[in-house]
């Protein structure tokens, strides 16, 4: 298998500088959106919006800054396994708190 291969060059090409700036800009815009939205009272939707935006931001960081997009697919599976564990724990825990 991969035992002895000398990958002095990582197998994939990292994206150039431009895409990083683009993502950075998007992240700033999204931050602006959450802060603005937080000022408006959406009731329960406020939290939902804030979390959705946070998820989008994380997705951008994970895929571009952290190179998940170009990594071996097994990395993506790993991330999903970890997230799955966390989310399932949270959901199951809430069966004790919110469905009484």
């Amino acid at each position: 298998m991969t035992q002895d291969h000398h990958n002095h060059e990582t197998q994939h090409n990292h994206p150039g500088y431009g895409i990083y700036f683009l993502v950075w800009f998007a992240l700033l815009v999204l931050t602006g959106i959450t802060v603005t939205v937080a000022g408006i009272d959406f009731g329960n939707l406020t939290v939902a919006t804030a979390l959705t935006v946070a998820c989008i931001k994380s997705y951008l960081v994970l895929t571009i800054f952290m190179h998940l997009k170009v990594e071996n697919p097994v990395f993506k599976v790993f991330v999903w396994v970890a997230l799955f564990f966390l989310i399932v724990s949270l959901v199951l825990l809430f069966t004790d708190y919110s469905f009484i």
Binding site: F85, V88, S89, L92, T95, D96, Y97, F99, I100
Partner: peptide, 22 residues
């Protein structure tokens, strides 16, 4: 095995849903 932890806690007074699922 990651989904059954609360069976250590059946006497603490959890919600019925949690009792059922776990």
């Amino acid at each position: 095995g990651s989904l059954v932890w609360a069976h250590h806690m059946f006497t603490v007074g959890m919600s019925g849903t949690a009792m059922f699922i776990f």
